[in-house]
Design a protein around this nucleic acid. Structure first.
Lengths: 340, 340
DNA sequence: TTATGCAGTGAAAGCGCTGTCATATTCGAT
DNA sequence: ATCGAATATGACAGCGCTTTCACTGCATAA
């Protein structure tokens, strides 16, 4: 049984009020008394009980982070960034996946743990996800990652997909001389895919390049699916000097490997670019030209915004936009970097 | 301000004791009363306050998971498995990284949050890590992942590196006809590297094959370092028909890419195998022959063991060993699978 | 009738802490 | 000496819950 504040008080021969005071550096405590108390705390290896504290203070210093999935480099980075920042600000992070069999229930469960977490960071990548509805019931502050919930006031941290996507497509057209660009996206309902696809179409049209319906594919962001798809098409793509714009690095890697397997050299015979700038982009030869999405910053920033809201519940909702930037590497054939 | 048990009691016209009783399905509550209370709970959308509950029960239903790092497929999988199992058993998971600037302090902090977590799962991959010392002070149940702390009684879940490693080396020698196997490991102090290296040496010696000191490299598990190393050596390796056994998939991928860049075909001219069987193993062409380490099972199992200990603190310490198994794919040249 | 048992409920004591208010002590100024 | 302010500390009321114990009816047995 761990020591309580009472034990410390007894040992230091003071009242628990005094102990509490030195603990919270509040009011004035006589220097000698303080030393005595501090000694007692050390000797007993005393730590305030979180529950008692939480009960009084109505806060836990725990933040929730709910992601669609915990799999893969992308989420890994967000967690990392969020975790670091949370610790920096004196919070603990509780990570959950909304996906899997729980389907948004864990949001609810994390939240309905009623006061366990002081606030949450949620990522809702699927547009018709139940999570959004669940969010309605959330009574504590939350910030939405990479999305916006209609008709609700809340903070959010989003990625400007547009900027990076446009820079990429422009680069492909202007610097690399692309005439045809195949777009390999994620699921049709995926919010990122939608944004990126739109930006891609815009730039294509502005450049008076045709956007063929047949040149837009919807996969599931996986290497495997992309590899399979590319296996069939890569020769045609190479023959027509098409460029391939994959909506994440993993798929780009799959496409490149499919090309190599078919004896098609990247970037000499086929140019492939990715999105996200995960570690995979550098774990591929040629290294991927891709769009850098500051994932760990996004996680960190979300935590920061959340903490600010916690401090000042009245402040107007913020929407922070992070820039996505073109990163030119080798897989597109030019190393001639565009300044972004 | 959320509803309290008091509010529910009032609305249902009963005492808080009765509410508590229906909440905890304890003792007998008259059916009619129960219905009334349940209705009130619904209407008020009432959830018991975790802190008050924790204060009484001295437990939080939160488990801590402390990993050396949160980066990469390997840890990702562990988190995933642990998270799933934790939810399944009615617990929440709190994930921390011991690494980074905190250096084991987060273990302490997570733990010294005194009662916040009911127990923790720790992974200590570095043998002279401070974390081990910190563990001494941990007063709550913990299970160690992939390691053992000398002189302490505790549960652990470990991977039998030996089995997989030996199977791999044997496969390379017997089925693939390897005469020289280069070992590319992680840091010298890394516990996994040590185990794997030892097993590798054993099998080599048993097969009367020379283990040259020059054929053992210590990198840092990264693609980049492996790529760089391999760039210089890959031609020599190919010329001498050496096999390369990398201590994780990432390095194997780096080596393969280095080979391809030098125009050396894998597996035709050079055979490279990995370890861990992360998703990377399948995101590489040729797909990696590797050793499957059941990471997500490991995470899940650790959580399970921890929960059992929580239920029965007296039970003798368990040490669970998970098998690592050879997975033969393409990068070693034989698809002739050895039965394991 | 009185005793006995039992299902069903409420009152109240904490769990370990914070924060308010009251109290005790000191000290310079009257 | 006397007083007020400033300083330092303690007593105690909760925070929302669980749990023990006591109590109320009411049915059954003596």
């Amino acid at each position: 049984m761990p020591a309580s504040i009472e034990d410390v008080a007894q040992r230091a021969n003071v009242s628990i009020s005094t102990v509490s005071r030195v603990l919270n550096r509040r009011n004035i405590v006589n220097d000698k008394t303080r030393k005595r108390v501090e000694l007692a705390i050390q000797e007993l290896n005393y730590r305030p009980n979180v529950f008692a504290r939480g009960l009084m203070l109505q806060q836990s210093n725990i933040l929730g982070l709910v992601l669609p999935d915990l799999h893969g480099e992308f989420y890994s980075e967000i967690i990392r960034g969020a975790n670091l920042k949370a610790h920096e600000l004196g919070y603990q992070l509780m990570v959950s996946s909304a996906g899997g069999n729980n389907d948004g229930n864990s949001v609810l469960s994390a939240v309905s743990n009623h006061g366990l977490v002081d606030g949450i960071v949620v990522m809702v990548s699927d547009i018709d996800s139940k999570t959004k509805k669940t969010l309605d019931k959330v009574m504590i502050p939350f910030v939405v990652l990479d999305g916006q919930v209609e008709g609700m006031k809340h903070d959010s941290v989003v990625i400007d997909q547009r900027h990076g996507t446009e820079a990429m497509v422009r680069h492909l057209i202007q610097d690399c001389g692309a005439k045809r660009i195949v777009f390999v996206g994620g699921l049709k309902t995926n919010i990122d895919t939608i944004d990126r696809l739109e930006a891609y179409k815009d730039v294509m049209q502005r450049a008076s390049l045709p956007v063929s319906h047949d040149d837009v594919y919807h996969l599931d962001f996986s290497y495997e699916k992309a590899f399979l798809l590319a296996t069939n098409l890569v020769e045609d793509w190479a023959a027509t000097e098409a460029f391939v714009f994959a909506a994440n690095d993993e798929m780009a890697a799959g496409i490149i490997d499919a090309a190599i397997e078919k004896g098609i050299a990247v970037p000499d015979q086929l140019r492939v670019v990715g999105f996200d700038d995960t570690r995979i982009a550098q774990m591929t030869r040629p290294r991927l030209t891709t769009v850098h999405v500051p994932m760990s910053s996004m996680g960190a920033l979300a935590v920061e915004v959340l903490c600010q809201r916690l401090k000042d519940p009245q402040r107007p909702p913020t929407k922070l936009t992070l820039q996505s930037d073109l990163v030119v590497r080798e897989s597109c054939g030019t190393t001639h970097a565009e300044s972004v």
